[in-house]
Design a protein around this nucleic acid. Structure first.
Lengths: 234, 234
DNA sequence: TCTTTGTCAAGAGCACTGCTCTCGAATGTG
DNA sequence: CACATTCGAGAGCAGTGCTCTTGACAAAGA
């Protein structure tokens, strides 16, 4: 059995090695465009391919590690951006900050975004570990909504109650993410979340090619309109 | 030079062969999950791998053919669904019909949906030929919007004009897709389009796993709310 | 009818991939 | 110091996309 003593030198070197391999993999992913070759990673590190298997049991394992890192990186970016807005009652500002943070992160590392929000990799099943980090941006958005509601700043729109078969599930999400808001607001939030990531995906995957070129301005405009839809504006 | 006489026997056999290969590829794509192997396709057809290259110059070529077919298949499904609504002035009904057609198509052939709306394939650049078939669903949606506008059924919402740097591009899209509507309505349409495909992607790529289970009902509910957002509902 | 011409499938082969196994060498711990 | 563990290297297997050559076959021309 491996001892893996916490502070041991071996363990530290090993951790560094793992980090280096992941970095090389990320670099390769960015260069070749979503095509990750274990052998090429090994080559770049000046080692033989079989040596990499000392650190990752399989290519999928390495990919999973990258995916987890990406989720956490995006999650942290969202949280930082959301917390950076000084005026906590500027709910529109907070929403825009987080939305832009998500887009900026995705534009900066498109391949990692594709890794977590593109089509799932063949044969790859997301382990349970990815669930918690994957909802971090959603939690941030939920907090804003909840705060706005409690401040009475969530404009009441004509309520369209979800059909009974959905009601329970929507409420369960609500309880986790924005416990104080109504069902109907939670539905709108889910829609806004869908639209946000739809917009980022469309931009990154070239869906707006030759249609809209000033993508940053478009994203901002569209995020503001979605804020109104949410009931957040002014 | 190849003669390729239109009705020649050789040409007909060849066309059938191409179709058979594509079908085998689609079948394999559905089974293995987005992992297309030319050799496996050849194996399934009882021929050797090199023979396939008589019909497709490369694996990417075969993939491109599948992508083009998928675009046209989805486009036709949208058009048929849109045309099937007898009451042409039931704009909400028409919108819902097309939206559901898109989702139904995607759910029925998830791998082909992933092919065209997932992360772009490594190193693969969409040829110009894919542009026209890829906007067919958008054209259908634009028509509904245009008809609704001309019938005075497009509820006027507080106009949020796009910033000047976007205005020209939005108007250019408008002129192609729904020439009679205002800029602000066109923006809402683009957002609704984004949300629609975001919703389908979220469902197919498992983003709602363990969150919302009655996905068909959710999609319908959410499409109705987006219709209100568009200004379509009654 | 015989010959030419183009098309086709097959097979071998190249460079690449993920992955396994074995074998020495280096290394930290008792 | 000796032992046990960990590591990197190398060979090797089965798979991949793709190329090139070879021989069979069928459609058109003399």
């Amino acid at each position: 059995m491996a001892e893996r003593t916490a502070g041991s030198i071996r363990a530290r070197v090993r951790a560094e090695m793992v980090e280096e391999i992941k970095n090389a993999a990320r670099r390769q992913l960015a260069e070749t465009g979503s095509d990750l070759s274990l052998r090429a990673v090994a080559r770049e590190m000046g080692m033989v391919s079989s040596a990499v298997y000392r650190y990752f049991a399989s290519r999928d394992d390495l990919l999973t590690a990258l995916i987890l890192d990406a989720y956490n990186s995006l999650g942290e970016a969202s949280e930082v951006a959301g917390a950076a807005v000084a005026d906590r009652s500027d709910f529109l500002g907070r929403w825009l900050a987080v939305a832009h943070a998500v887009r900026d992160w995705a534009v900066a590392q498109p391949h990692e975004y594709a890794l977590i929000y593109g089509s799932p990799v063949p044969g790859y099943a997301a382990p349970q570990d990815t669930v918690e980090p994957s909802i971090r941006p959603v939690v941030v958005l939920g907090e804003i909504l909840n705060d706005a509601h409690n401040a009475g700043a969530l404009a009441g729109r004509a309520p369209v109650p979800p059909p009974t078969s959905l009601s329970a599930e929507v409420r369960r999400v609500r309880d986790v993410v924005a416990p104080d808001v109504g069902e109907e607001a939670m539905v709108r939030a889910l829609i806004a979340w869908t639209e946000l990531f739809g917009a980022v995906s469309f931009e990154l995957f070239g869906r707006f090619h030759n249609t809209i070129t000033d993508l940053a301005t478009w994203f901002d405009h569209q995020a503001r309109i979605m804020a109104t839809f949410l009931g957040l504006s002014d």
